[in-house]
Amino acid sequence: MTAALECRDLWKSYSSKRVGLKTLLLRPEVARTSRYARRWALQGVSFKVSRGQGFGVLGANGMGKTTLLSVLLGIVQPDRGSVSVQGRVASLLELGAGFHPELSGRDNVFLYGSILGMRLHEVEERYHAIVEFSELGDAVEEPLRTYSNGMVTRLGFSLIAHAPADVFLIDEVLAVGDARFQEKCRRHLQEFRKRNGTLVIVSHDMEALAEVCDEGIRLEMGEVTDAGPIGDVVRRYQRP
């Protein structure tokens, strides 16, 4: 099988301070040193995901999971190491990040679709399928600020689900919506994999991970401390 996604020896650190104009002008030495106040978020992370595979990244909060996805997505540059991804990527790092509260559900579908890299005609072709999957019905004409969290989540997921992508990067989103809708999302992800799509999911929801992934790693303080079939990684994580 060919690798859909591969990363080799990723290192990433953040500086923790924010610099204002006053600091920059009056105390440049502080501005300079705070840039080197390193906090490692990723330390030598390497793994490979084959096409059609589901890959889970396990770890508690603040262990570098989201940083890893941001590096895979190309938003954050690693200090060292490299990433290669084959095909179109769609990400679902935070549901509703691109939504505008004052616009209607319909306008948001077009805006968000465009953010995801779709052409207008592509969104138009998929519009009915998107609205149907989201189960919003007539509410799609109302402004988004009148929606409940669940409705926003459903609309966000159905947009992503209909975006043309070969690789999906997902952060913690399987834990949202009601049980029935979650089940629908899982089924959709399974089908996506059957069509040879690749999934990378970051989560602390073990059950959901075990259900849609085959392999995985465990991140602790930015380091890979466990790797293998997802069932084993989850088991070792729960009973150390």
């Binding site: 997505l73 190309g74 938003i75 179109r88 990527v89 769609a90 990400s91 505008h100 004052e102 616009l103 306008d107 077009f110 805006l111 465009s114 953010i115 995801l116 890299g117 779709m118 052409r119 207008l120």
Partner: peptide, 24 residues
Amino acid sequence: MIERSPWQLLEFLYLLARMELKAR
């Protein structure tokens, strides 16, 4: 990174600007 063709970028730009005006 999401890949975008020049046409897609233009459409995206148009939507961003138009939707912002519409919301305002």
